[in-house]
């Protein structure tokens, strides 16, 4: 699904009145004509993009792209459906990483015992994207490549310190999440590249994570969301912290000051509050239908506290 507001907000410098005018002009239609191709292998897909990448859009789960086509906000010449590529849906641990195939559906992430036990922030987030029917189609790769600041997985990947493996005609390229999200609807992925998989470092012992999201109603885009991962040492000192903010700016944000403030400390109430204040300061929320910027900033503070608390409980062995 796409949020009209996020599209409109991405257009430069739109004031509230322009915003209203634009929202009236978004009319649902049948997509403009396009040519559809369905490669059977990654190689075939990359070869096609190499030739036609400038005029092509990649179709994964389609629950953002097809509405965009229907609103005629996108009218590519070619649609490259990667759903027929075999072997792009997987969740496995090897070589110190969790590997998630880019075409893996949210529903499979949500149901994965491995992810529930060690990557809770990911199952928290994936299990609350839109609704169960959308989760049957929507893909991890699509969520990330769309780079909608209101999507839940970009912030999750920032908190987890994940990397994206892009495949182009000259081979693979590994892009850290921090460099991957460039701007609203913009990633570091080239038009000639396909996202092959997402790699998340396997967490060591005493690591816990959580995702907290505030919605107006079930299945809606978040007002704001916060992803957190905390790694403790045997003495309960914070060795590493990863945070990510959803719907808090033009793209998913990594509040580095907040992360740094917890490192080397024993995280108590005061330290958590301090980190949450810093995260809220780093946020750049905008006022829209989901609330005024000040309210969102405050909610980022509150959710950062809660996400850190839950992550810490899990790091200490709770669930």
């Amino acid at each position: 699904m796409i949020s009209k507001e996020s599209i409109i907000a991405s257009l430069n410098n739109v004031g509230p009145n322009t915003l209203y005018e634009l929202s009236k002009r978004l009319i649902l239609l049948i997509p403009a004509s396009f040519d559809y191709v369905a490669p059977r292998t990654l190689d075939e897909g990359v070869k096609f993009l190499e030739k036609q990448g400038d005029d092509a859009k990649v179709l994964a789960g389609g629950h953002s792209l097809i509405p965009l086509l229907r609103f005629r906000l996108a009218s590519p010449k070619y649609l490259v459906d990667i759903n027929r590529i075999v072997g792009l849906e997987y969740i496995r641990e090897s070589d110190g990483y969790l590997h998630i195939g880019s075409l893996t559906r949210y529903a499979d992430v949500e149901a994965s015992q491995l992810i529930q036990s060690k990557y809770q922030v990911l199952s928290d987030a994936a299990g609350h994207i839109a609704d169960p029917l959308v989760r049957n189609m929507g893909t991890v790769g699509g969520n990330i490549c769309h780079s909608d600041p209101a999507n839940d997985l970009p912030a999750t990947m920032l908190a987890l310190g994940a990397s994206m493996v892009a495949l182009g005609s000259s081979g693979e390229r590994v892009i850290p999440a921090e460099q991957f999200f460039v701007d609203t609807f913009q990633t570091a992925l080239k038009l000639t590249e396909l996202l092959k998989e997402i790699r998340v470092p396997v967490p060591s012992a005493h690591t816990g994570s959580a995702y907290m999201k505030l919605e107006r109603r079930v299945g809606d885009f978040p007002i704001v969301g916060v992803a957190a991962q905390v790694k403790l040492n045997a003495q309960g000192i914070c060795e590493n912290v990863g945070l990510g903010l959803t719907a808090a700016g033009p793209k998913a944000l990594k509040p580095k000051g907040a992360e740094a403030s917890l490192r080397g400390k024993k995280p108590g109430e005061k330290e958590i509050r301090e980190a949450a204040n810093l995260a809220a300061q780093d946020a750049q929320p905008v006022s829209d239908l989901r609330g005024p910027a000040e309210y969102k900033r405050e909610m980022i503070r509150v959710l950062t506290v809660r996400a850190l608390q839950r992550a810490l409980e899990r790091a200490r062995g709770g669930t």
Partner: peptide, 27 residues
């Protein structure tokens, strides 16, 4: 709704419930 919100168009495709307004026929 035609925008994958309401679920009135739900069908079962290869064993999974999906919203048919947001899938192409060719798929």
């Amino acid at each position: 709704c035609d925008t994958s919100n309401c679920g009135a168009c739900t069908v079962i495709l290869d064993g999974k419930a999906v919203k048919s307004c947001t899938i192409l026929a060719v798929q």
